[in-house]
Computed example of a mutant assay.
Amino acid sequence: MEIKGYQNRTQVTVFEFSGLSDDNELVPILIVFLLLVYVVTILGNLGMISLVYTFSSLHTPMYFFLCSLSLADLFYSSVITPNTLFQLLSLKKSISFFGCALQLYFFCALASTETLLLSTMSYDRYVAICYPFHYNLIMTKKKSFGLIILCYSLCFMQSFAHTCCVFSLPFCGPNLIDHFYCDIPPLLKLSCSNPLHCTMVTGILVVIYGIYTFTTISLSYAFIFLSIFRMTSSNGRLKAFSTCSSHIICLSTFFTTVFFVYLGPHSGVFELQDKMASVFYTTVPPMLNPLIYSLRNQEVKQILIQAIKKSLNRTPPQ
Rank of each mutant, 00 (worst) to 15 (best):
E2C: 09
I3D: 07
Y6W: 09
N8M: 12
Q11A: 10
V12W: 04
F17M: 05
S21M: 10
L34A: 05
L35K: 12
L36C: 13
T41P: 02
G47P: 14
S50M: 11
L51N: 02
S56N: 15
C67V: 09
S68Q: 07
S68L: 12
L69V: 04
S70W: 03
F75L: 08
Y76N: 05
S78H: 08
V79K: 04
V79T: 10
P82I: 07
L89R: 03
L89K: 07
S90G: 08
L91P: 13
K92D: 13
K93M: 08
I95Q: 07
F97Q: 04
F98Q: 15
L102F: 11
F107M: 06
S112C: 05
L116F: 14
L117F: 02
S119V: 03
S122I: 00
A128P: 14
F133A: 09
N136Y: 15
L137F: 15
K142T: 13
K143G: 00
G146M: 11
Y152Q: 08
L154S: 13
L154W: 14
F156C: 15
Q158G: 01
A161G: 14
G173A: 13
P174W: 01
L176T: 12
L176F: 15
H179M: 12
F180Q: 01
F180T: 02
Y181E: 04
Y181R: 08
P185Q: 07
L187P: 05
L187C: 09
K189Q: 13
L190T: 07
L190A: 10
N194S: 14
V201G: 10
I208M: 10
G210M: 03
F214M: 06
T215E: 05
T216E: 06
L219I: 06
A222L: 05
I224T: 01
F225V: 00
M231W: 02
T232L: 13
S233Y: 02
N235P: 00
K239R: 12
C250L: 11
F254W: 07
F255M: 03
T257P: 12
V258L: 04
Y262L: 12
P265E: 00
G268K: 11
Q273I: 15
D274A: 12
K275W: 06
V279T: 07
V279Q: 01
Y281E: 01
T283D: 00
T283R: 06
P286T: 04
M287H: 10
P290L: 03
L291H: 08
I292Q: 06
Y293R: 03
S294H: 04
S294T: 09
L295T: 05
Q302V: 11
L304T: 03
Q306P: 00
I308T: 08
K310T: 09
S311M: 11
N313V: 00
N313S: 11
